[in-house]
């Protein structure tokens, strides 16, 4: 499922938009170096981190989208950088576990 389709189905908030692309897997984590080493290509990355370094890491791992969980919103620097880079940043009210279930169910990953 593409990120845009996922947004429509999940009802998640869109903080920043990117290009059309498929969500092919998922990864949950807040420690940036773990994510760099373990996240898979085109994943939905679920996290509660909301600072600008998230954008740099998302670019390095080439994730399909960032999902900020637990009502977290990007800070100003992350919001600006994500727009500039064209990264999908979504927001979920759910905790990381529940959001992961949503991604798994809707995207069949």
């Amino acid at each position: 499922m593409t990120v845009a389709e996922f947004v429509a189905r999940s009802g998640y908030t869109v903080f920043s938009e990117g290009e059309e692309r498929e969500i092919e897997s998922g990864y949950c984590g807040d420690f940036l170096s773990n994510i760099i080493s373990r996240a898979t290509d085109s994943c939905a990355w679920l996290t509660v981190m909301n600072n600008v370094n998230v954008a740099a890491v998302a670019t390095l791992i080439d994730c399909a989208c960032i999902v900020l969980c637990e009502n977290v919103a990007p800070d100003d620097a992350l919001a600006a950088r994500a727009k500039q880079l064209g990264l999908w940043v979504l927001g979920a009210k759910e905790n990381v576990f529940e959001a992961a279930k949503t991604v798994a169910k809707l995207c069949n990953v």
Binding site: D30, F31, L32, S33, S37, M49, N51, N53, V54
Partner: peptide, 14 residues
């Protein structure tokens, strides 16, 4: 800020 997993140097090696 999300740093401090102790994975940076291992990642550089990898």
């Amino acid at each position: 800020l999300g740093f401090g997993a102790g994975m940076g140097l291992p990642n550089m090696k990898k």
